[in-house]
Design a protein around this nucleic acid. Structure first.
Lengths: 166, 166
DNA sequence: CTAAAATCAATAATCATTATCACTTGATGC
DNA sequence: GCATCAAGTGATAATGATTATTGATTTTAG
């Protein structure tokens, strides 16, 4: 059994911004200020966030240069379509994370502090392949989340954060 | 690698109804007509359903004996707490299925017809155990969904059903 | 049988997300 | 450069699933 759960690395030729521009052009969409701002903010660092988090970061980072709520939602969907982001549903809200230039992985979700811990396992893909053969099912992707209590929360009884997804 | 994806069986001493009664009593909750009706309808057959589906079935099955929408939602939550049902989020809505007396399993989700196919794999639990050790993470459960196209939809290009979760 | 407590149905409220629509702006050709 | 115009934006309202509220109604203890 594969015991290495560490994430590898992925080399990419284009920056997220360039990749998104390429995607937009291929779809006949425009490269707007708002999309620029959002891509820059989203790829400033790697973390897990939802639309509301991004809104907050945007208003904090670009004083004055606001982006409206609908545009944030619209652009997040586009970034998913473009393969730059991946999304998952967690507790009613949609959570996003980097996909482009970031290695394939799954998550452990701490029920106490809501933290998401990433890990990689080749085994999951193997299960998928075997399933595909046996059920004539064309697997295009998967989502695996282990729920439980993280190391931090096991030690200190009191949860650290309430809804901070990092 | 384990190639057997078929679901085994689980023996239970109590019927779902008895089990729920026991749960309610242990919590000082009451055994009401509405909860009776809902448990009976939910365990009439094994399938995947959401609150709305259940509402429809209830009004169809028990002509006159209606249960209000809030009560359906409340009772579904109680059934999850009682360990009788499991829930997962799929496309914005909460989908439920039997847990009590039903073997542990995961799902393949067809993107075309929305069908959920169940399978069992011991490997997933093994991954969880290894992860728990390595990250000091106490695993209490997991959710694994393979997305793709099912055998039926691969043959006929036209999707069969639009939102029938079975 | 009676009363206190839990539960119910109906309604309104909430929350995240999406549709609408008048106004603005980026890409393209001149 | 600049005009043109479809795509994009923001403000707002709408949606759809779920939850809180509240007054009426059962259930169980005594």
């Amino acid at each position: 059994m594969d015991q290495d759960f560490s994430l590898g690395t992925v080399q990419v030729a284009l920056s997220p911004r360039e990749r998104f521009d390429e995607f937009l052009q291929s779809r006949g969409k425009r490269i707007t200020q708002q999309r620029r701002i959002i891509v820059a903010e989203v790829f400033r660092r790697h973390d897990h966030f939802d639309a509301e988090d991004l809104m907050d970061h945007l208003s904090a980072a670009t004083a004055g240069r606001r982006v409206s709520r609908p545009t944030v939602y619209r652009t997040l969907s586009e970034l998913v379509d473009a393969g730059l982001l991946r999304s998952m549903t967690l507790g009613g809200r949609t959570v996003y994370e980097h996909d482009y230039g970031y290695p394939q992985h799954d998550h452990m979700h701490c029920q106490k502090c809501n933290k998401l811990i990433e890990f990689h396992s080749d085994e999951v893909a193997q299960i998928g392949e075997a399933l595909a053969q046996q059920h004539q099912f064309r697997v295009t992707g998967h989502r695996l989340i282990f729920t439980g209590i993280c190391a931090d929360c096991r030690v200190q009884k009191r949860p650290t954060r309430k809804l901070d997804l990092v």
